[in-house]
Design a protein around this nucleic acid. Structure first.
Length: 419
DNA sequence: TCTGGGGTCCTAGGACCC
DNA sequence: TCTGGGGTCCTAGGACCC
């Protein structure tokens, strides 16, 4: 059986752990530039604020219901996630960390699943303050279904086992709610009068294969109770991405180059932090997809490195070279980013047969180590590349950001006691 | 006026091989 | 005038996830 442990309203719950006055209140977490709502407390969901909604469309609702808005604090969420996962590891079961707020457990033997789930739930709440829902079923996709219902059944735990019970749940479930079916496939399925998950399971395999490819067929098998998706315990990351949407659209190559250089720098530091090197790099840029009066432009260009690397000057130069391949004069760019992939461990990297052993390599490594150490000691971007342009310090924003209570000595939580 | 950021996997089509 | 059949690999783009 698969157990899916899913943190409730994760980012909002984390904020509420450290700010008791926000508990049981409507609260939303905002993306960069305060553009989008990326997380909501239960109460914020209740007043009708959807996930991923642009903030400007919901200003009135937010004021009306006195909803608190917070800037996102990913270092804090990341650390709290690590703590939750650590607790799950303590149970010594097969574990797959699926996302920042979800993990699958796989249990081969027969045991009291409800009792175990209750113990997991209790321990995570007690040790971290984060409430979780748990779905238990014979396949991952059905465990997802179970979790959907667990979120609203009071106990936060649902065990989906016998076929009649599964059938009754699938009959209630909108096909678009199924894990692996997004809005495109939902529309398509609806056009064939497939509305519920159950109706989808009744379609024949070749039709599903044609309409939804093998991915969709696997999903349907899983819904029927045949497990196709295994537990992926050692999922090594395949790529690292750094991207941003810009508050002000960018039309100048030089400005865009500076942004790209800064992304490449961040990626270099990230690679070195994990002892990794990348063998490919890709730069992409796109215009505003919400504009209706101008054509949407989105391009990318990949470059293969002759030898895997994490050397920032190289990454910057390749990223800029890649940018120049796609940059179009006259286009206003809204979003851009750099992706590195083909990741391997630095000490096991494949060398280029025809390149000379590089005498400068040792010096480059020392340079990067020193660079990283200075930034670690004196703070992010104390030292940076001229290619990034002049970096202005953040001017204070209207939304407040909580402190990094668990990861920074300078931002420990302070508690005021009144008499 | 204002619309996130970080990932994975699959497929179609083109370039190339013999 | 008429031009094969069987493959592999790579890439961009699109679907999905949280």
């Amino acid at each position: 059986m698969f157990l899916l442990v899913d943190c409730n309203n994760f980012f909002a719950s984390v904020e509420q752990v450290f700010a008791p006055k926000l508990r049981n209140k409507p609260l939303v977490i905002l993306s960069n530039n305060e553009g989008c709502i990326i997380a909501r407390s239960k109460e914020a969901k209740a007043v009708g604020i959807p996930m991923g909604a642009p903030l400007f469309k919901y200003r009135d609702l937010i004021i009306k219901h006195d909803v608190t808005t917070l800037a996102s604090n990913f270092p804090l969420y990341g650390d709290m996630s690590r703590r939750v996962m650590k607790i799950l590891e303590d149970f010594e079961l097969d574990l797959e960390i699926y996302s920042v707020d979800e993990a699958f457990l796989f249990i081969e033997q027969e045991l009291d699943f409800l009792k175990l789930a209750a113990e997991i739930q209790k321990r995570i709440l007690q040790w971290t303050g984060i409430p979780v829902s748990i779905g238990i079923a014979p396949t991952k996709t059905l465990a997802k279904v179970a979790t959907t219902y667990a979120k609203s059944n009071g106990s936060g735990i649902v065990l989906l086992k016998d076929s009649q019970m599964i059938e009754s749940y699938l009959k209630k479930l909108d096909v678009g709610e199924v894990w692996g079916i997004g809005h495109r496939l939902k529309e398509k399925l609806n056009s064939f009068r497939v509305k519920t998950a159950y109706e989808l399971t009744q379609k024949n395999d070749s039709w599903i294969r044609n309409q939804m490819s093998v991915v969709g067929l696997r999903t349907v098998y899983e819904l029927r109770g045949t497990s196709c998706l295994k537990l992926n315990e050692i999922a090594s990351q395949k790529s690292i991405l750094r991207s941003r949407s810009f508050t002000v659209e960018i039309g100048q190559l030089e400005t865009l180059e500076q942004k790209i250089a800064s992304f490449a720098d961040t990626l270099g530091r990230q690679l070195r932090k994990y002892g990794l090197v990348c063998s490919q790099i890709c730069t992409f840029a796109s215009s505003n997809r919400h504009h209706t009066h101008v054509k949407y432009v989105s391009d990318s260009f990949h470059i293969q490195l002759t030898e895997p690397s994490s050397y920032t000057p190289l990454l910057i130069s390749k990223a800029k070279k890649s940018l120049r391949k796609i940059f179009q004069k006259g286009v206003l760019y809204k979003r851009a980013g750099v992706l590195v992939y083909g990741l391997t461990n630095e000490d096991s990297k494949q060398r280029d047969l025809f390149s000379r052993p590089d005498i400068d390599e040792f010096e480059r490594k020392r340079l990067m180590e020193t660079y990283d150490r200075i930034n670690h000691h004196y703070g992010e971007k104390s030292l940076y590349f001229a290619a990034e342009g002049f970096i202005k310090k953040n001017i204070d924003k209207s939304t407040s950001r909580s402190g990094c209570y668990t990861t920074s000595w300078d931002e420990l939580l302070t508690i005021s006691l009144s008499k």
